[in-house]
């Protein structure tokens, strides 16, 4: 980061400013809130992937699959066509658990694999999950998806389904909880184990850390978070959407959320989600709407901004890797995992 005082102030205080803005924004209208809520969901999914890919250094190319597992578990547990109908909060709980178990199952055979082999196994797992969801159409209703799933609700508070603000603040609160948990885990013994395994697996083993255990825990927690995000997404949309929504390209978008902000960095994930999802669901959509309104799109595929999505994502990734590979918030700016507790100085 530059030493210029303005940049320093921005770098120091943007999270606070962002929090203030998102707290106030819905007061200006539901339209903005509707657009911001998916960003929060993807930020949670990004946090989940960040535990695996950022903290533990295991490249996971199947994050969307865990999102799908969460979404479909939540949907099966809450849609009226099935007899479970357990409601929003128990549904979230079950989704997290199923996601964590699925992550552990994937990690079991993948524990011994290094780098690219692991990446390809997670990619394959993602393919298997979308295929299974597509093919088990007796359960998942195939490409129709399951709907209507349970809408978000706040315990002891009743509000009309059409009111958007309560959902917005609920999701914001859930995101803040997820951020806090990730932050705490990174600053604890677990976080040290993850980063030790990432930096030098063999040295970590020689320090008495079992890398297999460490990776399993990372996968369980990370996948649980991704599934949590998936369930929230399903609830927000009222449907599990369809299996092919959670394909490899979705996984890459989630990976980009983690990479753009800076791997292994909670603040970076939030920034990444804001940029990636914001671009995809706000800027591109609004630009297309605006151009259509002015009659500039016509029948030409080239004149539809959303058709340029992959091109823009792709070029952004290439340029990013070339100019700022460590992400917008590089790891060097991250404070030490364990800070000195105030009482420690007393007993030298």
């Amino acid at each position: 980061m530059s030493d210029h005082p303005t940049i320093k102030i921005i770098a120091r205080f943007w999270p606070h400013a962002l929090l203030a803005i998102v707290l106030v924004l819905p007061l200006f209208g539901d339209a903005i809130a509707t657009k911001l809520t998916p960003i929060m969901v993807f930020a949670i999914v990004g946090l989940g992937l960040n535990v695996v890919a950022g903290f533990t250094g295991l490249l996971n190319l199947g994050a969307a699959a865990f999102m799908a597992i969460g979404a479909y578990t939540f949907a099966i547990c809450t849609v009226p066509i099935y007899p479970f109908q357990i409601g929003f909060w128990p549904g979230l709980g079950v989704a997290i658990m199923v996601g964590a178990v699925a992550g552990t199952i994937l990690a079991l055979p993948a524990m011994r694999l290094r780098g690219d082999y692991l990446a390809i196994v997670t990619l394959g797992f993602g393919e298997i999950i979308t295929d299974v969801l597509k093919n088990l159409d007796a359960i998942t209703k195939g490409t129709q998806g399951l709907n209507p799933v349970a809408a978000p609700e706040i315990p002891f508070v009743t509000y009309s389904i059409s009111a958007y603000k309560p959902t917005y603040y609920l999701y914001l609160a859930l995101l803040l909880v997820a951020i806090l948990l990730c932050h705490n885990m990174r600053k604890s013994r677990l976080g040290r184990q993850w980063i030790a395994v990432r930096d030098d697996e063999l040295a970590a083993r020689s320090m008495g850390i079992s890398p297999a255990r460490t990776k399993l825990i990372a996968f369980a927690i990370g996948s649980g978070l991704c599934a949590f995000g998936g369930a929230m997404f399903a609830s927000l949309n009222g449907t599990s959407i369809e299996p092919s929504f959670y394909d490899f390209q979705q996984s890459v978008v989630i990976l980009c959320i983690v990479i753009v902000g800076g791997m292994g960095n909670v603040k970076g994930v939030i920034l990444g989600a804001l940029i990636m999802v914001g671009f995809n669901s706000i800027i591109l959509v609004n630009l297309t709407e605006w151009m259509t309104r002015n009659g500039w799109t016509g029948n030409n595929v080239l004149a539809t901004p959303s058709n340029w999505k992959f091109m823009i994502f792709g070029l952004a990734l290439i340029l990013m890797m070339r100019l700022r590979p460590q992400g917008l918030i590089p790891a060097q700016d991250v404070e030490p995992v364990t800070q000195k507790p105030a009482t420690a100085g007393a007993t030298p």
Binding site: G115, V252, N307, F310, M311, G314, M320, M321
Partner: peptide
């Protein structure tokens, strides 16, 4: 970016792949 960590190049490769997919889409659609 050959000297950079392996992940950097991998992400760059995914980026190139996205650009090509988009080109292919236009090629087929025009």
């Amino acid at each position: 970016i050959r000297e950079a960590p392996k992940l950097t190049a991998l992400v760059s490769a995914i980026g190139v792949s996205f650009v090509f997919i988009n080109i292919g889409m236009f090629w087929g659609g025009l």
